[in-house]
């Protein structure tokens, strides 16, 4: 299936894009993240959470949406 991934904050600097659509056959978010880390090795060093269907979910959640948001925590104030 095709999954649209949005990158917030400094993650878009790692991926050089704010969103992209990738082809994906595995079933869990963690597997998709592993795949992204191969494409973007610097993603490994980043802290972020994943939102699916407008909800923050744990990485071992089954993929049930064709749109994900990867968002890092911000420290600035």
């Amino acid at each position: 299936m095709k999954v649209k991934i949005k990158y917030f904050g400094m993650l878009s600097e790692v991926t050089n894009c704010e969103e992209e659509t990738i082809d994906f056959s595995e079933s869990h978010i963690s597997e998709l993240l592993e795949k992204l880390c191969i494409k973007y090795p610097n993603l490994r060093n980043k802290d972020f959470q994943v939102a699916q269907n407008q909800e923050l979910v744990s990485f071992d959640t089954e993929l049930s949406s064709n749109e994900l948001v990867l968002l890092p925590p911000f420290s600035g104030g």
Partner: peptide, 9 residues
Amino acid sequence: GAIYKFQGQ
């Protein structure tokens, strides 16, 4: 509240 460059939470 927290900010980064052009984005906020």
